[in-house]
Simulated scan of single mutants.
Amino acid sequence: MRRTRITGAIALAATAALALAACSDDSGSGDTGGDTGGEAEGGDSVTIGIKYDQPGLGFMDGDTPTGFDVEVAKYVAGELGYSEDQIEWMESPSAQRETLLSTGQVDMIFATYSITDERREQVSFAGPYFVAGQDLLVAADNTDITGPDTLDGKNLCSVTGSTSAQRIKDEYSEGVNLLEQPGYAECVTALTSGQVDAVTTDDIILAGLGALPENAGQVKVVGNTFSEELYGVGIPQDSDQCEAINEAITKMVDDGAWQEALDAATEGTGYTPNADLNPPEYEPCDM
């Protein structure tokens, strides 16, 4: 289906009246909404799901959330009329994201949430706001694993609820042995202890994990991506805020805040996002 370049593509159609209408009539979980004037209309807070264990993307440092996903979430919430102190953060593990949205426990999810047709059967998406690529994390001295087709007989770790490891088994290395862990930190621990030979997820996530002081020098990203992962904003299926969220992402890209947040999130990791795919194209809300 046709996709439209996010930068400037909806500016022609977007008017202040439409933006106000889209933002002030939310039907997600019954307690979100707002206008563009900075005061939330329809509720005193907005609940946003993020990851707590992905350095550089969604990471809870004490009581403070940090990372690129967090910065995009704060920007979008601001455009929807919520100040930062009106945001309630909720941990959203991969296996629980659809449930959290469909039961109204969160209003939006920014959690490296790849847009897929299967997930669209349960939730809706705005965005995407970033395009990553699936890759592998291996021991720093590993020269045997060079891509997803070199994993037969190897042990591969991914997080419960993620589709990344099963994709490798289905499409590249039927003989790979899969191990699931509740979080990425546990997968990297399994890697550094020799329990598994590789960890798989998106390249930007692996880069953040590899850059942690406790992992530095022990692991490396293979650097051979084999997918395009469109990070979308998860919203309930009955939400009417898709267009408003897309407009907020467009504004973030156009005013430079998107690039600033991405640079801060990836600084020192050695990771360079695919410039041909980022900033990304957004998916029309009427898909």
Rank of each mutant, 00 (worst) to 15 (best):
M1T: 11
M1H: 12
G8H: 13
A13F: 13
A14S: 14
L20R: 10
S27E: 13
S29L: 07
D31I: 09
G33C: 09
G37A: 10
G37I: 07
G38T: 09
G38E: 07
G49C: 07
G49M: 04
K51F: 12
D53Y: 12
D61N: 15
G62S: 06
T64M: 11
T66F: 01
K74E: 00
K74R: 13
Y75L: 00
G81S: 04
G81Q: 02
S83L: 08
E84L: 05
I87Y: 04
I87C: 05
Q96I: 06
R97G: 01
E98R: 07
V106H: 10
M108K: 05
I115D: 02
D117E: 15
G127K: 00
Y129C: 08
D135E: 06
N142V: 11
T143D: 15
I145C: 07
T146C: 11
D149C: 08
K154I: 10
N155C: 03
G161C: 00
G175E: 11
V176I: 12
P182Y: 08
A190Q: 13
S193C: 08
V196D: 08
I205H: 03
L206V: 05
L206T: 06
G210N: 00
L212D: 12
G217W: 05
N224P: 05
F226Y: 15
E229S: 13
L230W: 12
G234E: 00
Q241H: 09
Q241Y: 00
A248L: 01
T250S: 15
V253C: 04
D254G: 07
D255Q: 10
A257P: 05
A264E: 13
A265M: 03
E267Y: 05
T269M: 03
Y271F: 03
L277A: 13
N278R: 04
Y282E: 08
